[in-house]
Design a protein around this nucleic acid. Sequence first.
RNA 1: GCCCCGGUAGUGUAGUGGCCUAUCAUGAAGCCCUGUCGAGGCUUCGACUUGGGUUCAAAUCCCAGCCGGGGCGCCA
Length: 444
Amino acid sequence: MPCFDWGCTMKTYRTHYSKDVSAEEYNTVITVSGWVEDIRNLGSIAFVILRDRKGTSQITVFSKKTPELFKKLIDLPRESVISVQGVCKENSKVRNGYEIIPEELSVLSVAQTPLPLGVVDKVESELETRLDNRFIDLRKPDVQAIFTIRDNVIHAAHEYLRAQGFIEVHTPKIVASSSEGGTDVFRLKYFEKEAFLAQSPQLYKQSLMATGLDRVYEIAWYFRAEEHNTRRHLNESTAVDIEMAYIQSEEDVMHILEHLVHAMWRSAGECKAELETLGRSVAVPKVPFVRISYDEVITKLKGRGSGIIWGQDLGSEDEKLLGEIMKDAGTDFYFITRYPLASKPFYTMPEGGDHSRGFDLECKGIELASGSQRIHNVDLLTERMKACNLDPAAFETYLKAFRYGMPPHGGFGFGIERFLMELLDIGNVRECILFPRDRTRLSP
RNA sequence: GCCCCGGUAGUGUAGUGGCCUAUCAUGAAGCCCUGUCGAGGCUUCGACUUGGGUUCAAAUCCCAGCCGGGGCGCCA
């Protein structure tokens, strides 16, 4: 099958991707383009492996029949970009069943040597080296597969949320109010004023609940100036954020979240070729996910010897232990509900005395998302701000949205890189984003 | 913010005071080879993070810097 319908007869660099050649094309002239992955020169016959987006094809060239083409091809440095037109011949000796006998060759770009990073070398490079040369690193099929899957799951998120009546919004990333709590923010100069990079769309998406849009989602970047150096933190990351109005309780929000995760997980499962490249399989989780209250969590953890006391946040060890407990109970995914009010942000709806309507979604001991029913009463909201040592005056533009009619609402934030890390069992979150920003990395 | 660890050719490594003119692989350059597919064979090239110090002698030990990794805290 030809790769694109160009709608005209113009000469093109590519009539087929390597994977799209089938018996139909045998003994016809095709054009392929891509990177020279390898050249195996046997003297008077040479095999050039050409890599494109979908795989590789073999170009077989003979020194006696086509001496000029032979010389031109075998002298190319690896990773040069070429376009080859030639006859596609069936050949069972070749892995994908065919080879191309070239008639015309255009050298589109000659690669410098040596490469800073081998694409198909027999030695693995360190993540540091790979990220420094990400454009080459991304030529590796397994690295590329992560981003194809990423594209698929994000697409699935859009589809699911739209089907549920959510509309996509884009809120400012340069913001005036300082921290909504929880994390350090990047400061920047905004003409004569001080501004910050958004740590989340929280305040804006809540404000939108006062508009009648009712259900909004945003898939965007956010920025956190934490000086951590771990394999699961980024200073610039992406998230799926939603906010929905007229909810009865946080249960409505959790319902959307679990179905969203389910839809994304399922769409990843459909990326068969990429999963095979990565050597992974994904087991689509069953919905609904298990709900376990914070109080039950504490009881269970204590029962397994943890020294945690009520009111504390779960540390890494406790989260891991809980992951094991839940796995023994037959589930990787679980909501921790009814968190202590004190450990959740100011906008979280209180429940009873010390509890809240805040929840986290965890997967195997890693926090994937957190959300809650929010406070929609402005007096309570102001009171909670003060209790969290925040100055209501600094949040006046946010509070204003609550004074003129604000329905009950809730939402969540869901980290995309963390999700991919869990989904594909990747050891370092930096692998899940094209150009990671971490404690020390600002380029590329 | 606290704590731990590391830095050797383009890439990845061996080397814990003298046997280092630094190992091996991969790579690059060149030659041989008509069916390779981790091709094979031969030749060549290429490195001790920086600055001090200890010592007869430092890749190796000490101090400082630079660069990096990871754990905790916090979080997505």
